[in-house]
């Protein structure tokens, strides 16, 4: 239905500061409401119409294109600090329609609809002939890789036992034959080393999430898994601006499963769960 008096709307430039401000509010809204997957960043503003509102204010109708970043939505890192997933990594694009009400210079989202789709295999092949493509998340090899990686992580973890929360992304690498998987985990009230029956463990009331990247290599007569997990500080109910330094990524190195557990550089024991970022490498 037309908004405001009649069909009069104005069409500012898509690169106007005001239009960009509206688009950035929209992208923030996406990243705060995405239930799973990865944060998105603004790529292009396709179209904008501004309708006058009664008794005051304006309604911005805006179409934007976004690109997926490498930060999971559970990662507290601000999206400005997140790297855009590149074409050769099988990029994912978002296509969104928003309506934002501007009153007293402040935007608020009234309507949001987004679709996302991975780049085509042909486009990925154009920039990198041998790069792996995204795999279905319910592929048995992907599920097995995530479960094996989490088991390896829990077996070496001195803290609480973690359960699989979501498989977020996976690729089947042809050479060497391996499965790369990214997934999120959630802390439970069991101790990792003692948790014999995962079913007996319940999730912590104060959710503690982690994000893992793992590769399962298929070897002759066996398999080898390397996993890196970053456990995030338990989030308060509403997301608060992070303290200085809370988002510093700790450099991680991948070690084989047989090596003794190693700890983040500069420490001699595992970080306590309360520290801002706790990366455990196995």
């Amino acid at each position: 239905a037309p908004h405001g008096p009649g069909l009069i709307y104005r069409q500012p430039n898509c690169d106007d500061p005001e239009t960009e401000e509206a688009a950035l509010v929209a992208v923030d809204y996406i990243n705060q409401h995405l239930p799973w997957g990865y944060k998105h960043t603004l790529n292009q503003i396709d179209e904008v119409k501004v309708w006058p509102q009664q008794p005051f204010g304006e309604m911005f109708e805006i179409e934007i294109d976004t690109l997926e970043t490498t930060c999971h939505v559970l990662d507290p890192t601000p999206v400005a600090g997140c790297r855009v997933r590149q074409l050769k990594e099988h990029a994912v694009e978002g296509d969104c329609d928003f309506q934002l009400l501007k009153v007293n210079g402040k935007f608020s989202v009234v309507y949001a609809k987004c679709d996302s789709s991975p780049d085509s295999a042909e486009d990925v092949r154009k920039v990198c002939r041998d790069c792996p493509l995204l795999a279905p998340l319910n592929d048995t090899r992907v599920v097995h890789a995530a479960e094996a990686a989490l088991a390896a992580f829990n077996a070496r973890n001195n803290g609480s036992n973690f359960q699989l929360e979501e498989i977020s992304r996976a690729q089947l690498v042809p050479l060497p034959p391996s499965t790369y998987v990214e997934f999120t985990i959630s802390g439970t009230d069991c101790v990792a080393k003692e948790a014999t029956e995962a079913a007996n463990c319940s999730l912590l009331a104060k959710k503690q999430y982690g994000f893992c990247k793992a590769t399962l290599n298929e070897k002759l007569g066996g398999e080898e898994v390397a996993v890196t997990c970053t456990v995030f500080q338990t989030q308060p109910a509403t997301s608060q601006p992070q303290p200085e330094g809370a988002n510093e990524a700790v450099p991680t190195a991948v070690v084989d499963a047989d090596a003794p557990a190693s700890y983040p550089l500069g420490t001699s024991e595992p970080l306590s769960a309360g520290s801002p970022i706790d990366t455990r490498v196995f």
């Binding site: 430039n13 960043t41 790529n43 292009q44 396709d46 486009d123």
Partner: peptide
């Protein structure tokens, strides 16, 4: 005498208002 009709001319290249600039790359 023969006079040319006045023809309007754009001051410079007309930048289409939309779509806007691509900040990263197009998929």
């Amino acid at each position: 005498s023969v006079v040319q009709p006045s023809v309007g001319a754009a001051a410079g290249p007309v930048v289409p208002p939309c779509p806007g600039r691509v900040r990263h790359f197009k998929v």
